[in-house]
Structures are given as structure tokens and as C-alpha cells.
Nucleic acid binder design. Structure first.
Lengths: 254, 254
DNA sequence: CGTAAACTTGACCCTTTTCAAAGCCCGTGG
DNA sequence: CCACGGGCTTTGAAAAGGGTCAAGTTTACG
């Protein structure tokens, strides 16, 4: 059995109780009944190719997903093509909750790598709240955590300068990936994100992102090569970004 | 009976069933049992003076609030004082949910005007999910809606220019206030927000915010005077900001 | 091995920031 | 009643951070 990764789209196990994600220490354990319910709620799994659209901006979409493996992102665009990435999605993230609220998705979701996901019918959510309050609570928990992530990104885009923004993104993504157990013995993580993604996430131009990234690499703070990111001087990066390391805690998984 | 306003801190009614907010058409109706539960869950009400701190950044806080009247905002700051306003809070908004997730508040909440709020003990939330799934679902709904608001602000701060940002903020706040029935016959709404608030919400400097605001006013797009905002040419503002008017829908209220 | 995507780098320009100072509004106190 | 002071707004001038344009280089992959 291989563990799911952020890089490739490994299909989810047939039975939720044997979900490889749950075998990590990242997620809070669920009771057998809850697993049973999630299993019955799940309508299937999908694998989506890299650089493709899972949810189209401004279009009604009646499904929820849990990202099982691979990497994706939420974004919004303006009519002239300007794009803002709202946050990156990693295994365990719940996708599509906002559509429950405003019948049309206000943001798009695109994959970066090939992604595999568990699919849930959107209209079953209310049912879940009724049948398993704990799972409903978990959904709220996940929603609040994602908002907190967007809050961070808004502070970054609104008030940090280019250097601080890049340092922030590197640190934040590395930390999230490492937490999922995706770092190798050298502390390097798979990093399929392009500079265009970084620019769009930080509200910078591609060119300036490149120059800033270059500068930080030259200063010996990090290294990106062969699709992997390694933080050489995380302390310096954290100082730059004023990165507050919140204690890790277990995250619910639906 | 006077209706709650965004300007002053009118104390909430003693009984939730007679809540003046619920008498508007903005909020989805609740059953008597739900009202009963909310009433018993509520531990009291508070009135907070203008320009004061309700929740301190990065500090544990064990309470939830529903804003009943007045105007406030969520924000984050960097050590050198740079501040980013994440979103504005208006009557009906739920405050403090994120603290349930990451035991310490990652953002501060300050009042703009005097505010009155209903107070709920944080540790009773889980209980609510269990006792009244519908209310739990409402909390999730509110969380998702707030996230969607922060998403919008991130797009604005990250990818719009100064003019577009200001147009966006004017439209968005006006719309939210008007929806609560706070617009007078001329379509003007109480607008206690300072230019510093606007600057901090948009990720601009105070000076540039002023100049941009001035330009739009000179162009005859809006007017701010005597603490009231009136949109003179909302169409032009909407065109500038690429503002998509989502249909109004009823919002849950806890 | 060739082509397209992704990354680099330099030069120039413009939007926004910073600095500085004055004007306005309003409540307080003499 | 009017002077004083603090917060908010307004304006101008100069500086800079970041955007845009253009072109070259490297990498990935069919």
C-alpha cells in the first residue's frame, strides 16, 4: 500500500475505513458509524488530469469533494484575465462547500497535478448534519480553518511587500506539505507549483515573482529544483515573513 | 420599537423570539424550538463603545457573538503596525467562530461605532450541533458566506487597481447596509467608516485612498458627507469594479 | 530532437507610497 | 462664546517598489 501524495493522483481506497489518509496522524479519528455514514454518503471517486478545471467559476455545481491526492487551487478571475489564487488545496481539504451557500460557485477550482477525489452529492450535506452532528461540526471546522487560511493570504497580499510575500508562501506551503508527511529525509517536498501560480497567489506579476524568488534563493534561503522545494534557512524566511507557527493539531476529515 | 441600526448600539431584546433583526425580511425564519434553544444558549448581551477592541488578536477567547447593532471589523496586523482589515461586520454577523478551531483568535475584532451583541459561551457550540442540526447547518452556512466575502476581498486586494478597489468597497458596503434596511429614501446609508479603515481594508495607503475617493466623488459617482454614503452612479461604479450583483437571499441568524 | 512551456534577465515606466503640511470639524474647557 | 486640541481629510512633491515589454535560456516531454 502506498500513501497518497500531493504529486500524483492515487485512487482512493474503496472503503473509507481503510482510507490511507486516515492512517496518518494528521487527521482526527472517526468512529466506525461515522465512517459507515461517510462511505454511504460518498457517491464515488474521480481522477482529474493535471492543469484542468474541476469547478468552473460562476457556474452551479452540485457536488462536494474531498481531495485525496494531488494538488489544486481555488481562484477567481476578472474579465481581462487577471487571476487571484485564493488558496492551495492539499489532500484532506474539503472542496465545494461554498456552493451550498450561494447556489453558484463564486470561485473556480483547477488542478495543478493529477488529483483524485472522493465525490459527495451536495444535497446530502444537510442529511449529514442531521445524522451525525459530529461530522457536521467537522465540516464547520474545516470551513473555519479554510477561512483562516484566506485571512492569512489577504494579509499577505494586502500588506506585505514582495519579499515577505514570497517568504510567506514558501514557508506556508512547505509546512502544509510536510505536515502531511510528504517531506523526504532532507526536508524537501514535492513542489509542482509554477511561478505563475505563485504570482497569482501573491498578487504579484510573474516577472517580479521570479526576481524575488531568485533573490531569496541566491541568499541561500531556499532551493527549488527538479520539482522539489527545500527550505535551507527556514528561520530567516520566518523572520522575513513574520510567520507565526501555529501548533499543529489534528484536522477532521470527511 | 425601533429597528437595530449599524450606527448605534441598541440593546438586543430580552427574548430572542422578539428579536428586531428577525422581524426584517433579511433572515430566514427559525422555529419556536430553535428560538427557545438559542435563547437558552445565549449567556447575555453586551454593549461595546466605539473604536474599541472586542477580540484581541492572537489571544484565546472563549466566546461567540452575534452582532445585533453597530459596525465592526475583523483585522490582522504585522509587528510594525501594518494592518489589514479582513472584512466588515454588520448586524446579523456571527463573530468568533474561528476561535473554536484554533484555540487562539488569529485575528482581532474592533468596533467602529458602538455595538451591541448577543454573547454565547464557546463551549456550547458543539452542543448546539447535537441538539439542533438546523442551527449547526446555519453556522456552517454563515462561515461559508464569510469566507466568500474574504475571497472577494482577496481578489480586490491582490488584483484590482486603486480605483477599482475603492469602487468595489463602496458598492459592497452600500449593498450590505441597504439590504439590512438601513438606507433612507435617497438611498443614503450611515457610513461611519474612516478613510483609514478603507485604506486598511483595500491594502492601500491612506493618502492614495483619499485621492482615489476624491476622484470618484469629483466624477460624480458617489458622495460621502455627514457620515452618510450615497451612490450617485452605481452603474458606473459597478462597471469599474466588475461588481457582480449576486441575488439577495435570506441569511440564517443565530 | 524539436517544440512548447517555464524560467531568467535587463530596461523603462507608472502606480502607489512616503513625507510634509495645511485645513476642517467638533467637542471641551476656560 | 470662543479658543484650543485632536482626529480626520486634503493636497503637493519626490521616491520607490513593482509592473510591463522584450528577448533569451533552460527544461520538460512527445
Amino acid at each position: 500500500m502506498h500513501s497518497p501524495s500531493a504529486a500524483k493522483g492515487v485512487p482512493p481506497t474503496a472503503r473509507c475505513a481503510e482510507c490511507a489518509l486516515r492512517e496518518t496522524t494528521c487527521f482526527s479519528p472517526a468512529t466506525p458509524e461515522e465512517l459507515e455514514f461517510v462511505q454511504s454518503y460518498r457517491s464515488g471517486t474521480v481522477i482529474i488530469p493535471p492543469s484542468s478545471t474541476l469547478i468552473r467559476e460562476r457556474q452551479t455545481h452540485e457536488r462536494l469533494y474531498t481531495l485525496y491526492s494531488g494538488m489544486a487551487f481555488r481562484y477567481k478571475t476578472l474579465s481581462d484575465g487577471r487571476r487571484q489564487i485564493l488558496n492551495f488545496l492539499l489532500p484532506g481539504d474539503l472542496i465545494g462547500l461554498q456552493q451550498e451557500v450561494c447556489e453558484a460557485a463564486q470561485h473556480g477550482v483547477d488542478t495543478i497535478t493529477e488529483c483524485s477525489l472522493c465525490v459527495f452529492p451536495g444535497d446530502g450535506l444537510w442529511n449529514m448534519f442531521r445524522a451525525h452532528a459530529r461530522l457536521g461540526y467537522s465540516v464547520t471546522w474545516l470551513a473555519a480553518r479554510e477561512e483562516s487560511m484566506v485571512d492569512d493570504n489577504l494579509l499577505t497580499a494586502g500588506r506585505r511587500n514582495a519579499t515577505e510575500r514570497v517568504a510567506m508562501l514558501l514557508l506556508h506551503l512547505h509546512r502544509r506539505l510536510a505536515r502531511l508527511g510528504l517531506a523526504d529525509e532532507n526536508g524537501a517536498v514535492t513542489f509542482p507549483v509554477t511561478q505563475q501560480h505563485i504570482a497569482d497567489a501573491l498578487g504579484l506579476s510573474l516577472v517580479h515573482t521570479n526576481k524575488t524568488l531568485r533573490r531569496l534563493a541566491l541568499l541561500g534561503l531556499h532551493e527549488i529544483s527538479a520539482g522539489r522545494l527545500r527550505l535551507i534557512n527556514p528561520r530567516a524566511l520566518a523572520r522575513l515573513a513574520e510567520y507565526y507557527d501555529r501548533p499543529m493539531q489534528q484536522v477532521p476529515l470527511v
